[in-house]
């Protein structure tokens, strides 16, 4: 496809979609959202890019190999289970740590966040692998 309208819109839409996907990911712990849906939104933005330009340019845009990204995402999800196991808790037990950030307040970071980020990466990369496989043929 080679449509200037679609290409221009995509240039504007892609950063917005990616930002939106991260917001959906981060609000997901207590409100509707989460890693899976965030990953799908990110992938839909990238798929839009692949349609407007071509799959090869999308890959160049990413700088990382999709399969490696998939491995990293899986490793993060696994790590969120292994951390509690190493501390003597059951596998995948949620563990939290509170940080005090000056001026901004408190930030609670825990293994569920790590798991969700892992899911986000896995979903985004595997969906892109599927889309690009179908697009290449």
């Amino acid at each position: 496809m080679n449509s200037p309208i679609l290409q221009t819109t995509t240039r504007l839409m892609l950063p917005l979609l990616l930002m939106f996907s991260v917001i959906v990911l981060l609000r997901g712990h207590n409100e509707p959202g989460g890693g899976f849906i965030g990953g799908l939104i990110a992938a839909s933005g990238l798929a839009l890019h692949a349609m407007a330009f071509n799959p090869r340019e999308t890959l160049a845009l990413l700088h990382v190999n999709l399969e490696t990204l998939l491995g990293v995402g899986l490793a993060m999800a696994l790590l969120s289970g292994l951390i509690p196991l190493a501390m003597g808790e059951p596998f995948l037990q949620a563990m939290w740590h509170e940080f005090d950030i000056p001026l901004l307040g408190k930030l609670k970071v825990g293994t569920p966040l790590l798991f969700d980020v892992g899911v986000y990466i896995v979903v985004a990369s595997i969906t892109m692998i599927m889309v690009l496989t179908l697009a290449e043929e």
Binding site: G71, L74, L78, L85, F91
Partner: peptide
């Protein structure tokens, strides 16, 4: 002991991730 019971799932999972990362 808790780790041993889940280990048959974790060991292949870790191996799969490593294989994916060293795919070349």
């Amino acid at each position: 002991m808790s780790a041993l019971i889940v280990s048959p799932v974790l060991v292949p999972f870790v191996a799969a991730i490593l294989c994916l990362l060293t795919r070349r």
